[in-house]
Amino acid sequence: MAGRFVTDGGLETDLIYHHGFDLPEFASFPLLDDERGRETLERYYEEYAAIAAAHGVGIQLDTPTWRANPDWGTAVGYDAAGLDRVNREAVALLRGVADRWSDRVGESRVSGQVGPRGDGYRPGAAVDPDEAADYHRPQLAAFAAAGADLASALTLTDVGEAVGVVRAARDVGLPVWVSFTVETDGRLPDGTSLGDALRLTDEQAAPDAFMVNCAHPDHVARGVDVDGPWDRVRGLRVNASSLSHEELDAMTELDAGDPVELTAAHGRLEELLGGVDVVGGCCGTDASHVAALWAGRA
């Protein structure tokens, strides 16, 4: 899976603040069951495919399924059968986008997106890896059955959950990338250093690669010490805002940050990591931010 790939930005914040959707529990996957929602999702992903085409690189299309797991699904009215269906349909929708852009981008791949069982901003007790594997396996199995190219687990806050996701992905035959989030000090919300989180996950169940998401580049950079396994971090999906998770969670207006400053900070972080291939955004970012990041990488 070598190559350079554009991926998308802050889907949920874009849908809420730029498209006027109400997303209970911050869940975007129910839009797959709505005609306007599906059309909006297709247009959203095509904006990023256009960025990939402009730069002559590939596109990684992450399904809108960050909340499509049992606990969050139940909260918005989906049972196990409904979740299985919608996770498969998400892959099919993005496969259609990939097919339409296949003659304009270097390579297209569809990634089944997994989110944390808990709240990505408010981690709970330490997670048992076997329990996490059992919990996430049905969603990963749906992605595999629908023909996803890989799985991506985003905004994880706990090594145990990361290990469980990797084990479950291996069970169903999917390559898998794991993405942790960090606080303003560059550490996971439970205080684990980013380097230790990478090492501990690799020791128990190594993913194909790591990412970091849902934090400003300057926050991530504070966690990049000299002896970490930074060559294992192959992707970044950063926040536009330099505010903390707690501050962002309390906001009622979008903080879109400054794309110029974001691009400069992203460039500094890439120099520290050394091998980033997948670049997109997270909360507060849209296609204009991701386009700026890729222009800065030219």
Rank of each mutant, 00 (worst) to 15 (best):
R117H: 08
A53L: 11
G9W: 12
R237G: 15
R187T: 06
C282H: 10
D231S: 14
N213G: 08
L293M: 06
T63L: 10
L254Q: 10
G3S: 09
D71Q: 07
F26N: 06
M251G: 11
C214M: 05
D190M: 08
L31W: 01
A80H: 07
E107S: 12
A168S: 14
G58F: 13
V212G: 11
G267R: 09
V165L: 04
V76T: 02
A169L: 10
E161N: 03
L198A: 06
T157A: 08
V76E: 02
L248G: 15
F29P: 00
A291M: 08
E35D: 13
A264D: 12
V278N: 09
R122W: 09
T13A: 04
Q204L: 12
L188I: 13
L273C: 07
A90S: 04
V105I: 12
L150Q: 13
M211N: 02
G275N: 15
E247M: 06
A133P: 10
L194W: 01
G274L: 05
G281H: 07
V172W: 02
E161T: 06
R95T: 12
D22E: 06
L236A: 10
G164W: 05
L31I: 00
W230Y: 02
A92C: 02
G186H: 02
L188S: 12
I59N: 10
V290H: 09
V182C: 14
V233M: 11
H289R: 02
L83Y: 00
H18P: 01
F210M: 06
R122F: 13
D79Y: 01
A49E: 12
A153K: 00
L194G: 00
A292M: 09
C282K: 09
D149E: 08
G9L: 12
E183Y: 11
L15H: 02
L31T: 00
A2K: 07
H289Y: 13
V290G: 15
A209K: 03
R122K: 10
D14W: 12
R67N: 05
T201D: 03
L41Y: 03
A169I: 11
E12A: 11
T40E: 12
T7E: 13
V178C: 15
P229V: 13
V176Y: 11
A250L: 08
A292W: 04
H266S: 14
S152P: 06
T184H: 14
D79N: 04
S193A: 11
G274Y: 13
H219M: 14
S179F: 13
A146H: 05
E107K: 09
H136W: 07
A126F: 03
A295D: 13
D286Y: 14
H19S: 03
R170E: 15
L200W: 14
T63D: 01
E271H: 12
G73R: 02
Q60T: 14
V105M: 02
E131I: 02
W66P: 06
H55Q: 05
R36F: 08
A206S: 11
Y44W: 09
G281K: 11
S28C: 00
L248N: 15
D208S: 14
H19T: 00
S242H: 14
R199K: 08
S288A: 15
A162G: 08
